[in-house]
Simulated scan of single mutants.
Amino acid sequence: MDLESVADELYALPPGEFTAARGRHVAAARTAKDPALAREIAALRRPTLAAWAGNLLVRSAPEQVDALRRLGEWLRAAQEGLAGEELRELTRKRNVLVAQLAREAQRLAAEAGHPVGDAVRNEVETTLHAVLADADAAREWATGHLAKPLTPRPGFPATTATSAAGPAARPARKRHLKVVEDPGEARAAELARARREARDAEREAREQDKALRRDASRRDAAEARLAEATARVADLADRLRAAEEAETEARDALARARRALTAATRTARQSRRAAEKAAERLDAVAAEQD
């Protein structure tokens, strides 16, 4: 057992199973007299739903993971070289791929039995943008061991590409800056985003509440079945003890009857022999008189 294999196992589990499994591995490491490994395992953090969904994506779609990492390398090189047309095209590809991968992560989470809402999907998208922006983030994500979403580094283009510097590009850049820097519109956009996130969070909370009620109902039904089975076992145990006692009594009675039969048979045999001797003496006396 080593830290890498343990982490691979733990971060592949649903978040609800993480803590108990980590505890078992910590106990196993301590039993194996490896306190350093036990401390390292204990330091592994339980993943958030968004991090877990991102880890699912890494394990389930390795070819898309490689494609995203390559696209990140190209995009970073294009940004550093100020290649405007290439930057715009790569940014477009990035946005399409990030959206596809985030939806795929959402689908994988649902298939794994833990549906997630749009708020979690948005966090997955944020992680994917960070992967594209930073090689270190890409390497961290590719391990499949994320405990929380990653954040893009400052200065990396977000959802639209900026034009290259030059006279023909200046009007478009100015118009873009005016839109972004409009305080009223920025506040409205922030408010709309906050409302969407609140709705998504509320929807996810309702889904989790529904799942909790469903699990509680299943638990109650299982407890009722267990109580019924326990009562039946107790009843059958009582019947078994009574049957065993009756069997013991019957065996004892049979043994006594067999002993009595043996004694009666012996007595009857002796009585028969005595009767036969008496008859012989009677015959002898009668013969003498004749």
Rank of each mutant, 00 (worst) to 15 (best):
R272D: 04
P154D: 07
R76Y: 01
V120C: 14
R70S: 10
R170H: 01
A260P: 02
H145L: 03
A158R: 12
R269M: 06
A21H: 03
L108M: 11
G113N: 14
D235F: 09
F156W: 09
R39K: 14
E223D: 14
Q64G: 13
Y11P: 06
G144N: 11
A227M: 05
A221R: 12
N95S: 14
R258P: 00
V180H: 15
Q289E: 13
A279I: 08
E80F: 02
L240G: 01
A32T: 07
E89M: 08
R103H: 14
A161P: 09
S271N: 05
A250L: 13
A133T: 10
Q64I: 05
K33T: 08
A77N: 10
E125I: 10
D8Q: 13
G72K: 04
V179R: 15
A243E: 12
E228V: 15
E207A: 14
L82M: 12
A260C: 01
A138F: 06
K148H: 05
W74Q: 10
G155Q: 07
A130D: 03
E249V: 08
G144R: 11
R193H: 10
L57M: 12
E123F: 06
D290Q: 12
A246C: 00
R94T: 04
V26M: 06
H114Q: 15
A51W: 02
Q100W: 07
